[in-house]
Amino acid sequence: MLDGLNLEVPQGQIISLLGPSGCGKSTLLRVVAGLTPAKHGTVSIHGEDVSQARSRLAFVFQEAALLPWRTVWQNVRLPFEIRNQKSRKTIESALKHCLEIVGFQPNDWHKKPSQLSGGMKMRASIARALITDPEILLLDEPFAALDDMLRSRLNDLLLRIVAESQRTMLFVTHNIGEAVYLSQSIAIMSRGRIAELVEVPFTYPRSSELRSAPEFAAFYGRVSEALYRSER
């Protein structure tokens, strides 16, 4: 499905993989995560094969993928449990820190996923991804099912997380506005290849006013054209 694909992601950057359904963007993300093995080619992080460096990655799924029988607190703690992190103090402070970053109030920490809204579930999912302090966040259309208002709020949350922690992010989306708002570069994908790599001209920090600026609309149009061009 993926063919002749080469992508270098500089440390601390957000790169969006943009393209229509079935173009291979989610597959690429899964290959990067080591969840789908590549028949040919390699994925390396600082020169190290991804299979050796998986602990430096975290994946945010399209659905929040919270374990429904666990509370938010227990869901976010899960990676620590699997990695046999024993220090209770470290775990508690990391959990509180991550839940605060994503905007969880303490009285929501012990709720089960079914008691949360879609946006809250996704916040918990992001907190779970952050808990192990990964260098690289891989996000597979995490906000696709959310309404526009919630989507833009969570976009701001992601920008804040990157600004505070200098994490690298690979972000899969089919939403042009989201890709432009979030990323430094947009890899436009078509039929399993990267058709074009577009640099986004806006500087950080970005705020929601940028969305209504004329230059944002103009650049949106440019990306949109590139996307249609790639499909021809």
């Binding site: 975290a58 993928a65 899960l78």
Partner: peptide, 28 residues
């Protein structure tokens, strides 16, 4: 759920951990 399995794979969970923390609770 495939996402749950992938989540455990990403954390490099052992077979035992996947059984105890994911499969058995899912089977209740």
């Amino acid at each position: 759920d495939q996402n749950h399995l992938d989540l455990f794979r990403m954390q490099e969970a052992s077979r035992w951990q996947t059984l105890v923390k994911l499969r058995i609770p899912s089977a209740i």
